[in-house]
Write a protein that binds this DNA or RNA. Structure first.
Length: 280
DNA sequence: CCAAGGCCTGAATG
DNA sequence: ACATTCAGGCCTT
């Protein structure tokens, strides 16, 4: 029986934060960097390769977070409806490549491209009679040719992906450092990577760099703000400029608080379900 | 600082 | 069938 603190695995996986997950019966298998994770029907996460993982962010005080973001009836409704929805803490490199690919795309295509990338550049492992490909190491992608990367269906993003991997190899992007510093410092750094703008940076920070004050503003979230929060956050123009994005984010942090990223996840999940959008 | 246009790709729409 | 649109943005002009 699920209680207030248990995890709703299906809804958490199907909320746009991860892509390389496959359901087998009641079990979920997922690629997380150099690891494979298995989540059983009781929501127990296990590293199949016996590595340490904090994929479920077990140190989060969910009760405190929920209370903190429960600012109005819209978000309260989403929280109630998707009780157990959690933000994962995923492998940063995989997360970075995933969201570079996500720009101007959709979930099915993102998953498709990522699978091809693992098949082409990742190490194959066989466990429990099932075959998987780990996510490739940064070196592997950094040394690949742009044409090779393009065979994975990523189009114009191929040079971005190569360059991003290079920057990780050269430590121009240092995930250990980015985890330690605050939102603004991390964002400034990560936006230096080509193909990473405001929205993609916020996704990477929220889903892999422990920045719960990141609030990715994609077209869905903009729609949601216009629909339910027109009084709190006025949006005048069709497209959001850099400056507007920053101002909006400041207001959102003031309104929802330091865990606003969780509010985003609940609202995003609810609205896309309302429109019957497909997940993995 | 803002607005407009282009961009790989493939599933969905007409 | 075939053309066009659109999709969880970013970069350049």
């Amino acid at each position: 029986m699920k209680n207030k603190f248990s995890i709703d695995t299906d809804n958490s996986i199907n909320s746009g934060q991860v892509f390389l997950w496959e359901k087998d019966g009641t079990d979920w298998y997922g690629i997380n960097g150099q690891d494979i994770l298995k989540i059983n029907k009781n929501g127990i996460v296990k590293s199949v390769l016996n590595s340490k993982t904090n994929f479920f962010r077990k140190n989060d005080n969910i009760q405190e977070i929920i209370e903190s973001i429960s600012k109005d009836k819209t978000v309260k409704k989403a929280i109630k409806k998707y009780e157990g929805l959690k933000i994962f803490r995923q492998d940063p490199f995989q997360c970075m490549i995933s969201f570079i690919i996500s720009s101007n795309s959709n979930i099915q295509k993102i998953k498709n491209s990522l699978e091809k990338i693992t098949e082409k550049f990742g190490t194959q492992v066989k466990i429990q009679n099932k075959e998987f490909f780990l996510f490739p190491k940064p070196e592997k992608i950094a040394n690949a040719s742009i044409d090779e990367i393009k065979t994975c269906g990523v189009g114009y993003r191929a040079p971005f992906i190569k360059q991003a991997a290079k920057m990780v190899v050269l430590k121009k992007i240092d995930f250990k450092y980015l985890e330690k510093c605050n939102y603004h410092e991390a964002k400034k750094n990560i936006c230096l990577v080509p193909g990473i703008g405001n929205k993609v940076a916020d996704c990477i920070m929220l889903f892999s760099l422990n920045k719960l004050d990141a609030f990715p503003l994609d077209t869905w979230m903009i729609k949601i703000l216009e629909k339910y929060y027109s009084k709190e956050f006025k949006i005048e123009t069709k497209t959001i400029t850099q400056k507007q994005y920053e101002l909006l984010h400041e207001k959102i942090v003031i309104y929802f608080g330091p865990y606003c990223g969780y509010a985003q996840q609940f609202l995003f999940k609810m609205e896309r379900e309302n429109y019957d959008k497909k997940w993995l």
